[in-house]
Design a protein around this nucleic acid. Sequence first.
DNA 1: ACTTATGTCGCTTTGTTAGCTACAAGATTA
DNA 2: TAATCTTGTAGCTAACAAAGCGACATAAGT
Lengths: 251, 251
Amino acid sequence: MKSEKKNQFNLIELAGDYSEILISLRRVGLSDYESKAYIALVAQGHGTAEEVARIGGIPRTSSYKTLESLRSKGFIRMNESRPALFYPVSPAELKKTITEAIGKAFDILENLHGVLSEKGMPQLVYTIMGKDKILAKIGEMLDGATARFFLSTPSMAPIRTLHSQRFREAVNRGVEVIIVAEPFVKVPDCTRVHRRSDLIATDVISDGRTALIASPDYSICGYSDNPFLVGHLEVFMLSPLHEAHPPEARS
Amino acid sequence: MKSEKKNQFNLIELAGDYSEILISLRRVGLSDYESKAYIALVAQGHGTAEEVARIGGIPRTSSYKTLESLRSKGFIRMNESRPALFYPVSPAELKKTITEAIGKAFDILENLHGVLSEKGMPQLVYTIMGKDKILAKIGEMLDGATARFFLSTPSMAPIRTLHSQRFREAVNRGVEVIIVAEPFVKVPDCTRVHRRSDLIATDVISDGRTALIASPDYSICGYSDNPFLVGHLEVFMLSPLHEAHPPEARS
DNA sequence: ACTTATGTCGCTTTGTTAGCTACAAGATTA
DNA sequence: TAATCTTGTAGCTAACAAAGCGACATAAGT
């Protein structure tokens, strides 16, 4: 046995590291039972539920649900024999996928750093949750529009159903209503329509003063009346429209 | 504003990524409130509890406990003014520390891979928890020793208190009792004592057939009667004793 | 046919989180 | 100085998840 292999195997360190490993596995979303079961499988190489329970120190009848949860979380694989056999996904493989996913989230957050900073921008982005509230806010923004209203959404029906009257009134009072919708989707009254097939979120801008961005299912949105933010967003959203093929002129 | 900065700032992607970030932060041990509070602080740069609550969409009175928890978890720092000001630890910094800790745990697990494999070794390591059970097992191992008993521990008193009679009886029936203890620590009857000051875990080997390794506080241990494992451990534990300065001969 | 092994289900207990109200203390304003 | 507002703490309830176990059904082995 090569010396580096002897150095690798160290049950003494294991006793010391065991609770540290449990803490780390807890940190990546496993319960105590799941952590113990996973460690047992790694140490054993593979095993039945009864073996995992015994090695890991968890109750046998609890081990079945524990192992099913581990499987659904991608930590282990199973062979549906009788008794079922379980195999760990290698720690090296899990390290890669888990640290990459966590790293990606922090990278996104890093880009977010200071975005809503108060430096010269007192207004903030408000989180609104709940489809009813979000659709109501869109209605308020439409009613409040005096010059220009922009809407881009992959899910037009809820807005059209609820606010078709408001769209008509806005067009009638001279608001330039610009809508970006998916092909063949019925739209409410408006000044211009653009058709795109790659819409992913609902975006609303009213008079370049207020803006709202909602998830596709309207479950959550960010709303802002921050002039810098809204102005920036308006440029971002409207620039591509000037470069696209001419829109359908309406009303 | 340089184009790459414009690309960085993307509230549209934020709406889409927001729940993904929440999931990832949940994965590294934050509750929903903590995740939302942290995201709000990252976006805002810094803020009061009231601001964090408003931006993050959590109840104001809940935000104090949430922020205190984030602080204790190392995600944010606070300035104890009135009102208190909170600052996020940068996502880049957290990414580094969290992925390193997780990576280290998986590295330890990788070394553990297959250690208890059944290939030719039917016996296993059993986890025993609870000081009483562990001390009782040590007593059983001592009573069962016929030729050689090895004990190394940074915490001798509990074993001496409970098992001094057993040590005497073992020595009297001809068992070679080898003890490794810290300097100046009183030891029970034995054949040889070695003094070391770097002991970290309690290690017991009986006749080269059974072995036990316990955490320093006796809260958890691994016990094995696997001949390969115990034999390997015995070599590991006893080799350094042959190279050390001569032990105190006893009895 | 009986026994053992395997697996599922449902229950209780405990702990955590979400969410809120009540209220005290400090700061600000009139 | 008194009133009001802001900040912060404490404690409560409800919901949910996890720990832990017993009862029991089914499959496999003897």
